[in-house]
Amino acid sequence: MMKIEADRAKCDGLGMCEAMAPDFFEVGDDGTVVVLDEQPGEEHRQDLSAAVDACPVLALKLRD
């Protein structure tokens, strides 16, 4: 099962992930990423991979 991991200490709150996959990420009130669904279905892998790859500070990972 795929899992989204976010390193909130690395996050700069730039919002690239939220822009690319708003159903799964948002920038919280504290300016860091909030993962809305940590274990998404496999059908979302392509969109989530693109969002993870777009993170300029490498704060996101997908794990299997």
Rank of each mutant, 00 (worst) to 15 (best):
M1D: 07
M1F: 03
M1C: 05
M1L: 07
M1R: 11
M1P: 12
M2T: 14
M2N: 01
M2G: 00
M2P: 10
K3M: 12
I4P: 06
I4G: 05
I4K: 11
E5S: 05
E5G: 02
A6F: 01
A6E: 03
A6L: 07
D7C: 00
D7M: 01
R8D: 06
R8W: 01
A9H: 10
K10W: 08
K10E: 06
K10C: 02
K10N: 03
K10M: 08
K10G: 03
C11M: 10
C11D: 06
C11I: 07
D12E: 14
D12C: 05
D12I: 11
G13K: 02
G13I: 03
L14N: 03
L14C: 11
L14E: 14
L14K: 05
G15W: 10
G15R: 04
C17W: 10
C17Q: 12
C17E: 08
E18P: 05
E18M: 04
E18C: 04
E18A: 06
A19V: 04
A19I: 04
A19S: 04
A19M: 04
M20I: 03
M20E: 05
M20C: 00
M20G: 00
M20H: 03
A21F: 12
A21M: 07
A21L: 06
D23L: 11
D23E: 08
D23I: 00
F24I: 05
F24M: 02
F25Q: 06
E26H: 14
E26W: 02
E26P: 01
V27R: 07
V27K: 08
V27L: 13
G28M: 05
G28V: 12
G28P: 08
G28I: 07
D29I: 04
D29E: 15
D30C: 02
D30E: 14
D30L: 05
D30R: 07
G31C: 13
V33E: 07
V33C: 12
V33G: 06
V33N: 09
V34W: 12
V34A: 02
V35D: 04
L36S: 03
L36Q: 01
D37P: 00
D37T: 10
D37L: 04
E38P: 07
E38I: 09
Q39F: 09
Q39P: 00
Q39N: 14
G41Q: 11
G41W: 10
E42H: 06
E42N: 09
E42V: 10
E43N: 08
E43Q: 10
E43A: 14
E43L: 06
H44T: 08
H44D: 10
R45I: 02
R45L: 13
D47T: 15
D47K: 08
D47Q: 15
L48R: 11
L48V: 11
L48F: 00
S49A: 15
S49H: 09
A50H: 10
A51D: 04
V52R: 14
V52A: 01
D53C: 01
D53Q: 09
D53F: 02
D53I: 01
D53T: 00
A54R: 11
A54G: 13
C55V: 08
P56S: 01
P56H: 06
V57R: 14
V57M: 14
V57Y: 15
L58K: 12
L58F: 11
A59K: 09
A59W: 03
A59L: 10
K61Y: 09
L62M: 12
R63K: 14
D64L: 03
D64K: 14
D64S: 11
D64Y: 10
